[in-house]
Amino acid sequence: MQQKTTQTSNSPLEPLLAATRLKGRPVILDGGFGQLVADEYPELDQSGGMWVSGVAVRAPNIIRDAHRRYLEAGADIITTATYQASAGGYIAAGLATTEAEADALLTATVALAVEARAQFIQAQAEEGPHQRRPLIAVSLGSVGATLGDCSEYTGKFGQGLTMQDVYEFHLRRFSMLARCLDASELRGQIDLLAMETIPSAEEATAIVRALDELSLRDVVLPAAWIAFTTPVTNQTGLGEPIEDAVRAATSSPLVCAVGINCVPTHVVPELLANIARVSPVPVVCYPNGQTWQGSTNAWGDASTQVSPANYAKSAMEWAQNGALVVGGCCKTTPEHIRTLAETAAVANSCCAPHD
């Protein structure tokens, strides 16, 4: 399905989209991060409401290594380990005592992705002249991701939060991010802003409002994408029509893409069609690689995990049906992304014209 891209002429996605279109493949995003670290390093403390953002403070080498593994697997875009990050979160977790200290922690965590990319590019240069420069997207989750109550999946934030409160939360966090991106080690290094696991059109409206407000103040942030989460094919997690959520998200020229993440794979085809039908911007798609059992609040057994080969096959189908950026969320790994990249390369070579 052909996507209109009228709002993205100045987006860093455009050159990447153009390059991959020429090669006949989708843009490849990285895979799961927090769950990957939790599965591979169960001994690490991910408590305190910061999850992998806290691990980035206590064990930065693990985070930098995960970024490198996704780059080496073939990711065109990697996302930072900052999904739960906020000034209040760092302070509540005892990792910072002031906003300035929280800024320094966020800066250092984003810098891990920058360092990993620099190492990857250097390794490429040593191997030959054909280099690629992957993009870096700063990951920020729903306000619910900072509450520790899983409300990022439902949009029912509770705790007396109004949509004005949600707007002010995003405004403060975007302001924090802008300060961090002005640090010498990050200036000019970050390409995108990934607003992830957004459960409602309401929160998307608050996010867009905050982005627009900062733009009016001449505060410059990277172009953003907004990815919704939902367990069904036609509504947000809160229950609004998914088309309304897409319209809310794309109402600002500061939003360069829209899509879905942290959703079960079985809802993707129809959900993707509903989004692509109304989206004026490119569509991103990165679902989970395993079934979440809501009744037990745990992942299903190993039989519910999608193999890298099957995931890659599905991802190519998503790409053929409207998703211009494909990757993975929880319970996907570098091997899933490697297999996807290899599958995309094979599909391209098979479809290429022959003399």
Rank of each mutant, 00 (worst) to 15 (best):
M1H: 12
M1S: 14
K4V: 09
K4Y: 12
P12F: 01
A18W: 00
P26L: 06
L29N: 06
G34S: 06
E40M: 02
P42L: 10
P42K: 11
S47F: 01
M50W: 07
M50C: 04
W51V: 11
A56V: 03
A56D: 10
A59Q: 15
A59L: 00
P60R: 14
I62F: 08
Y70M: 06
D76N: 13
I77E: 11
A81Y: 05
Y83G: 05
Q84C: 10
Y90G: 03
I91Y: 01
T98Q: 05
A100S: 14
L105A: 07
L105N: 04
L106T: 04
T107D: 08
A108I: 00
E115Q: 15
R117T: 03
A125Y: 04
P129G: 09
A145V: 06
T146C: 14
T146Y: 05
S151F: 12
S151A: 03
G160M: 06
V166Y: 10
L171K: 14
R172T: 10
R172G: 02
A178S: 14
S184W: 07
E185T: 14
E185Y: 07
I190G: 12
D191M: 07
M195L: 15
E196C: 11
P199R: 10
A206H: 08
L211G: 10
E213P: 01
P222M: 02
A224N: 07
V232M: 01
T236P: 06
E240C: 02
E240V: 01
I242T: 11
D244P: 09
V246Y: 09
P253A: 12
N261R: 07
A276P: 11
V278F: 09
C285Q: 03
Q293C: 09
S295T: 07
W299A: 06
A302Q: 14
S307H: 08
S314K: 08
E317A: 15
W318P: 00
V326H: 05
V326W: 04
G327N: 10
G328Q: 13
G328S: 08
K331D: 08
T332P: 11
P334K: 08
H336M: 09
I337N: 06
T339K: 13
L340G: 11
A341G: 04
A341S: 15
A347M: 12
A347H: 14
D355P: 15
